[in-house]
């Protein structure tokens, strides 16, 4: 199957490893990932807070671009996924808004009519590919290494709009971990925010929230964290370097595809492993090792 990759602003610049690992893993599993060109920011958080129609227009344009290519969108950032889905929902139900956005898009020959779907990476892995196929593709299973799943907020909430997993008890990441031979670890506050969006307004609060999560994960005995959103990945990595953290054992944070890659036989180089701020070798070296 073909999917249009919408990268957003942050992944290509701050976490290219996530982009590379995702493309490599999806191609291995039979998904053809096509770059969506000429895009813009989805409008999350900042434009979103200033003007509703401007926000709808920014996301609407991306949806219209995909519609022109007649392919579904793959979003790998939680915030982008949330913006695109929220605005799709808005434009699908509000004719006046839709007309207004289309009037702005008309000049470029673009139109939004709601024909394409927005899929977050987790939906593609769990539904379009399926756990069975992933399990069968494993060549070097992990040895039961304990991984804590962090889903982030916009991937699973609000359920009525995004329709990905159970918002209070999500399991997709956990099942992916187990599919490649890892052991999924449960921990308190699993569905809580990482604190990332707060960095702009109050860094201290953002750090408190992020470290709270790291504490819970550590106490639960996890060897690493898997993520499904670029902001979460960066935040959970970054908080482990802040003030007062020097005596902590740093726990590796890996985007899910970077964790799956080695088990599927993919080379480290394709997954951008050296770019991780916290060396993930303690995790990925465990694949292909007997228990």
């Amino acid at each position: 199957m073909d999917m249009l990759l919408y990268r957003g602003c942050t992944t290509p610049v701050r976490l290219p490893a996530y982009e590379a690992a995702t493309i490599a893993v999806l191609e291995k599993l039979g998904v053809n990932v096509i770059e969506l060109k000429d895009t813009n920011c989805c409008g999350a958080q900042y434009v979103e807070s200033m003007d509703r129609m401007a926000f709808a227009s920014m996301s609407g344009r991306i949806l219209a671009l995909a519609e022109r290519e007649e392919k579904d969108i793959l979003a790998i950032c939680g915030a982008c996924s949330g913006s695109l889905k929220t605005n799709k929902h808005f434009l699908d139900h509000d004719i006046r808004a839709r007309d207004e956005v289309n009037s702005l898009l008309a000049e470029e020959g673009l139109k939004y009519s709601g024909k394409v779907r927005v899929r977050h990476l987790l939906q593609v892995l769990a539904e379009d590919i399926g756990f069975d196929k992933i399990e069968r593709a494993v060549v070097k299973p992990y040895n039961g290494i304990k991984m804590a799943a962090h889903y982030g907020c916009h991937v699973t909430r609000p359920y009525e709009i995004v329709h990905v997993d159970d918002p209070e008890n999500p399991t997709i990441l956990d099942r992916l971990v187990e599919a490649v031979g890892g052991q999924a670890v449960d921990y308190p506050g699993k569905t809580r925010c990482c604190g990332g969006p707060m960095l702009a307004m109050d860094e201290d609060v953002a750090t408190t929230i992020g470290l709270d999560k790291i504490d819970n994960v550590t106490k639960a005995g996890a060897d690493g964290i898997v993520t499904a959103c670029v902001f979460c990945d960066i935040q959970l990595t970054q908080v482990q370097f802040g003030g007062g953290t020097s005596d902590r054992q740093k726990i590796p944070v890996l985007p899910i595809t970077q964790f799956l890659g080695p088990a599927l036989g993919l080379d480290e180089d394709m997954l951008g492993v050296e770019l991780n701020k916290i060396d993930p070798h303690s995790v990925i070296d465990c694949c292909g090792v007997s228990q």
């Binding site: 990268r7 290509p12 610049v13 290219p16 490893a17 982009e19 590379a20 493309i23 770059e35 060109k37 000429d38 895009t39 813009n40 920011c41 434009v47 003007d51 129609m53 401007a54 227009s57 920014m58 344009r61 702005l104 000049e107 470029e108 180089d269 394709m270 951008g272 770019l275």
Partner: peptide
């Protein structure tokens, strides 16, 4: 960052459109 992307086999050209936002700025 461009080099990092190239090393990973990713397209260093990001192709971001900056014209549409100009319309939004005027309008909203």
């Amino acid at each position: 960052q461009e080099d990092e992307r190239e090393d990973l086999g990713l397209n260093p050209e990001l192709h971001m459109n900056n014209e549409f936002v100009g319309k939004l700025r005027k309008r909203y």
